Amino acid sequence: MTSKKKKIANTAFLLLVFALTLYSVFKGEDFRAVMRAILKVNPWYILPGGLGVIIFIWGESIIIWYMFRTLKIHEKRWTCFLYSCVGFFFSAITPSASGGQPMQIYYMRKNKIPIPVSTLVLMIVTITYKSVLVVIGLFVAFFQRGFVHRYLEGILPVFYLGVALNVGCCIAMSVLAFHPALAKWIMMKCLKLLERLRILKYKPERTRRLSASMDQYNATAVYLRTHGKVIINVLAITFLQRFALFFVTWFVYKAFGLHGAHMYDVVMLQAVVSVSVDMLPLPGGMGISENLFLIIFRGVFTAGLLLPGMVLSRGIAYYIQLLLCAGLTLFAHLRIGRDPAVE
């Protein structure tokens, strides 16, 4: 598929999912009543919710900036913030967030950052990002049984699937990072099997490219072995980054003037939504995130405020983030690699 056709297909898929999301969420609901409830919220609680989105994006940019410095690459913090916006924007509009990192590598390359270096940095960002979700998912599944039975009975299959997919992803990335030789052997064997089964045609060039790409992970293994303190710091920043976004729902809850639910429950329920949808092949978890919210927060938001709460929480954490990152991605496209002040 050509690049142009792929963009058209991704855009059409995104619009279709968005339309189905609106239909599934608002079918049979009074949209005007929802908007009236949202307009009555306390704006002073919305401000820290919006700040949580900024911290979420800023957190990844600080990690990128910090890791670049350990590799003797001196990028400005603002430029790294633009890299993060590019990543979040393309992750939000592509299935399984598959478009984020390739586009980040593209813009880093425009600033003359070698592809092996950007691949190394973003590989570690992904490992730590997924690791935080795995820790949260396993903690809830094994040590919060009362919490699970109280709130998650209606979504347990989706939750456990999300945990399993994130664990599998972390294991696969850890093999790539810590055992690159084993990973290369597995991938080469899989390629030969696909060729033997005639699923793929034998192409020496494909074999060469796969071998070369797998060799890049040697650098990740070396970096992880020699920068243990850096990895611990990155994990700590990633935890703060992730929870900054989870707290958006708590501020939305307070903005409606609601009381009774504990902060821990609200924040961890939002974390459960993220764990459940992160690996699903939907742009930004669109559709499934909204419906999971309506199921598990039913006992948190009072009658009549559940749907407005979901609209406002999801609107800040995803849709406003999407619009912000879209604008800054456009800015990055126009300036990165062209304006010395941005490099």
Rank of each mutant, 00 (worst) to 15 (best):
K4L: 14
L15R: 09
V17C: 11
T21L: 10
V25M: 08
E29H: 14
F31M: 15
V34Y: 03
P43N: 11
P43M: 14
I46Q: 03
L47M: 07
V53N: 00
V53K: 02
I55H: 03
F56C: 03
E60C: 05
E60F: 14
M67L: 12
R69Q: 10
L71N: 09
H74V: 10
W78T: 14
C80P: 04
F81K: 09
S84H: 07
C85E: 04
G87Y: 08
F90V: 09
T94V: 12
P95A: 13
G99T: 05
G99V: 11
G100W: 11
P102L: 12
P102S: 07
P102M: 10
M103D: 06
K112E: 13
I113D: 04
I115M: 15
P116I: 11
P116W: 13
V117G: 06
T119S: 12
L122D: 02
V125D: 05
T128H: 02
V134N: 00
F139R: 06
V140F: 05
V140D: 04
F143M: 13
R145V: 08
V148H: 05
E153N: 10
V163G: 00
V167M: 03
G168D: 11
I171W: 07
L176S: 05
K184G: 02
K184Y: 02
K184A: 08
M187T: 14
M188Q: 11
K192H: 12
R198S: 12
K203N: 15
P204C: 09
E205R: 12
A212R: 13
M214S: 03
D215Q: 14
Y217D: 00
Y223N: 02
K229F: 12
I231S: 02
I237A: 03
T238M: 12
L240D: 01
R242G: 00
K254F: 01
L258Y: 03
A261E: 07
D265Y: 09
V266H: 00
V267I: 09
Q270K: 06
S274F: 08
L280T: 07
L280Q: 05
P283R: 08
G285D: 02
L294F: 02
F301K: 02
A303P: 01
G304A: 03
P308Q: 12
M310V: 05
L312V: 04
I316C: 00
Y318G: 07
Y318E: 10
T329D: 06
A332I: 07
P340M: 03
